[in-house]
Deep mutational scan, measured.
Amino acid sequence: KHLIERYYHQLTEGCGNEACTNEFCASCPTFLRMDNNAAAIKALELYKINAKLCDPH
């Protein structure tokens, strides 16, 4: 559950690194913003595939 919350935060708030290159992070310049419901679904999907989590900045 904690990991899913981290994915959700990364998708909605980002890691804080303006030069982030993680396509699944709101801080990445090319990230496409999504609403909270879509972010919750995506967080579950990312958890299932063990996607990369950013280190908070």
Results as ranks from 00 to 15, higher is better:
residue 38 A to L: 14
residue 36 N to E: 13
residue 1 K to S: 01
residue 37 N to V: 04
residue 8 Y to Q: 15
residue 11 L to V: 10
residue 46 L to G: 05
residue 30 T to L: 08
residue 43 A to P: 02
residue 28 C to W: 05
residue 1 K to T: 07
residue 42 K to L: 04
residue 4 I to G: 06
residue 40 A to S: 14
residue 1 K to E: 03
residue 44 L to S: 14
residue 9 H to S: 13
residue 51 A to H: 06
residue 39 A to K: 05
residue 56 P to A: 11
residue 53 L to I: 11
residue 24 F to A: 10
residue 24 F to P: 01
residue 7 Y to L: 05
residue 22 N to P: 00
residue 17 N to E: 11
residue 12 T to C: 09
residue 31 F to K: 07
residue 4 I to N: 10
residue 29 P to W: 02
residue 51 A to L: 02
residue 29 P to F: 04
residue 10 Q to I: 05
residue 8 Y to C: 13
residue 55 D to H: 04
residue 17 N to I: 09
residue 38 A to E: 07
residue 23 E to D: 09
residue 14 G to M: 00
residue 37 N to Y: 03
residue 10 Q to Y: 03
residue 41 I to Y: 06
residue 4 I to A: 11
residue 43 A to T: 05
residue 11 L to D: 01
residue 23 E to T: 11
residue 27 S to D: 06
residue 37 N to I: 04
residue 8 Y to H: 12
residue 49 I to T: 13
residue 40 A to H: 15
residue 57 H to R: 09
residue 25 C to W: 00
residue 9 H to Q: 14
residue 39 A to F: 03
residue 53 L to M: 08
residue 28 C to D: 05
residue 45 E to P: 01
residue 28 C to A: 12
residue 1 K to V: 02
residue 19 A to F: 11
residue 22 N to V: 03
residue 32 L to K: 15
residue 38 A to T: 08
residue 26 A to N: 09
residue 45 E to D: 04
residue 40 A to N: 14
residue 45 E to Y: 04
residue 21 T to M: 06
residue 46 L to Q: 05
residue 48 K to I: 02
residue 4 I to F: 05
residue 16 G to S: 09
residue 56 P to S: 08
residue 32 L to R: 11
residue 32 L to D: 10
residue 7 Y to H: 03
residue 34 M to G: 06
residue 25 C to I: 02
residue 24 F to T: 12
residue 48 K to N: 13
residue 19 A to L: 10
residue 24 F to D: 11
residue 32 L to I: 10
residue 15 C to T: 01
residue 18 E to H: 13
residue 12 T to D: 03
residue 50 N to I: 03
residue 5 E to S: 12
residue 43 A to W: 00
residue 38 A to I: 05
residue 52 K to W: 02
residue 5 E to N: 15
residue 15 C to S: 00
residue 2 H to T: 08
residue 2 H to P: 06
residue 20 C to G: 01
residue 10 Q to M: 10
residue 25 C to Y: 01
residue 9 H to V: 12
residue 57 H to T: 15
residue 28 C to V: 05
residue 9 H to T: 14
residue 9 H to N: 11
residue 44 L to K: 15
residue 3 L to W: 10
residue 39 A to I: 08
residue 5 E to Y: 05
residue 27 S to N: 09
residue 3 L to P: 04
residue 15 C to D: 01
residue 36 N to D: 15
residue 46 L to F: 09
residue 14 G to H: 00
residue 13 E to G: 09
